[in-house]
Simulated assay, not measured.
Amino acid sequence: MKLNRTTQRTVEILKLISRSPEGATLDDLCEKLDLPKTSAYDIVTTLAEMGMINVKRGQKQNYTIGLMSYRIGVNYTNNLNFIGTIEPILKAFAKEVGKTIFFGVPSDHHVVYICKFEPENPIITTATVGSRNPMYCTSLGKVILAYSDEEKREQMIGRIKFTPFTERTIKDRDQLLQELEEVKERGYAFDAREMEEHMQCVGAPIFDRGGNVLGAISMSTLYKPAEDYVALGNMISEKAMEVSRLLGYLGKI
């Protein structure tokens, strides 16, 4: 079977960019894939226009994977077996606690919402399936960062630009690292009204059979001073461990 050369090159470019957290320049692509510069430029220009890659402009244009690629990946992920495994558990959990439950996975230095499970009378949340938010101010993102291996965590944190969404948003790297230590000590993370003034979330990590952090689940609720968020944290942590065991996780060796 004869393969289309331009399509092959396009896929190779996307794969290379997806493996480059810091991004790739046109020179990087041409050198590593042995491509003519004019051909590579035409392809990346088209990919950028379609939202498949992002362009960071500077002395040299830098390319990172784009939101449209993430969304295509999300559609694929929704068909994976593990989604079918965890879906009924998290759906029942949302009904049990009467709060919205999210499952999210890392994508660069953001978290992408893969699944959303709502109770009978859900609160209105801005997060939707396929959308993404920064890791440093979401409970999902914080636990993913806290439980990722050191090299991967440093790569993700290195790309973060700390933007304040509320007065409670984490402001810098040192503050984030301190909080990540606390997250690992207690086993769950808070979004303490850091993304939205009226919303409080608590999240816990999901591990795969190899003990690697696969993603995280979170519980979202309107902020109430009388709410016992430590109890909610323990609850989400227990449910996350239940889901992890279903996926083959046996605990840290």
Rank of each mutant, 00 (worst) to 15 (best):
F190M: 12
S220P: 06
R193K: 13
D208K: 13
V202W: 11
Y229A: 00
L232Y: 02
D208N: 15
L222R: 12
E196M: 08
I217N: 03
L232V: 00
Y229D: 07
I206S: 02
Q200H: 13
K224V: 00
V202M: 13
S218I: 00
T221S: 08
M195D: 11
G211Y: 00
N234P: 14
M195K: 11
K224L: 06
F190K: 04
G211H: 02
S218G: 06
A231W: 03
E197S: 14
D191T: 04
V230M: 07
D208I: 10
L214K: 10
N212A: 12
N212R: 12
F190P: 10
K224E: 04
N234S: 03
V213R: 12
Q200A: 07
G203P: 15
T221F: 06
R193I: 06
V230L: 08
D228G: 01
V213F: 05
Y223S: 00
M219D: 10
G203E: 11
P225Y: 09
F207R: 14
V213G: 09
A226R: 15
V213N: 08
M199F: 09
M219T: 00
M199I: 07
A216E: 08
Y229P: 11
R193W: 11
H198T: 13
L214F: 03
P225C: 07
M199R: 07
A216R: 04
I217A: 00
I217P: 07
S220F: 02
P205H: 07
C201Q: 12
R209G: 15
P225N: 06
